[in-house]
């Protein structure tokens, strides 16, 4: 039961992780560590490692890009930015997320919606 729950939660997070990465980057360019901090704060990820293949995949798809930034301590670091194609995708994902949320709410709270309609 518990195992199943964990798995289900992981699957749910996995589905929207790419959406979240694009969202974080849409607010401004960021280092990987910044993205990780934001996602951890929001409890979107448990372990960081999963992020790197995703970033690479999104970069290859052309939704985001990176440049090398010199660092005061240590070697240069990757600085990620969202591309125009990424913004377009993000807008569509926003709509999709909205629709999905609405759908779930519609299913979860049928009486509320009904009563709402009746009230009108």
């Amino acid at each position: 039961m518990n195992e199943y729950l964990e798995n289900a939660k992981a699957q749910m997070r996995k589905g929207v992780l790419e959406y979240c990465i694009l969202s974080v980057l849409s607010e401004g360019d960021a280092y990987v560590s910044d993205i990780i901090r934001r996602l951890k704060e929001a409890q979107m990820i448990v372990v960081e490692g999963t992020l790197y293949p995703l970033l690479m995949r999104q970069k290859n798809a052309g939704w985001l890009a990176y440049r090398w930034e010199e660092s005061t301590q240590g070697p240069p670091r990757k600085y990620y930015a969202i591309t125009d194609a990424g913004r377009q995708l993000l807008a569509e994902l926003d709509t999709a997320w909205q629709d999905l949320g609405d759908s779930v709410i519609k299913i979860r709270q049928p009486e509320k919606t009904h009563s709402h309609e009746k009230r009108i």
């Binding site: 699957q11 996995k14 448990v46 372990v47 960081e48 490692g49 999963t50 790197y52 293949p53 995703l54």
Partner: peptide
């Protein structure tokens, strides 16, 4: 390892 996740967890994104 606990911060980054085990190899299985990292690769799991691809293999699920």
């Amino acid at each position: 390892i606990s911060t980054l996740g085990t190899p299985a967890a990292i690769a799991g994104v691809d293999e699920s």
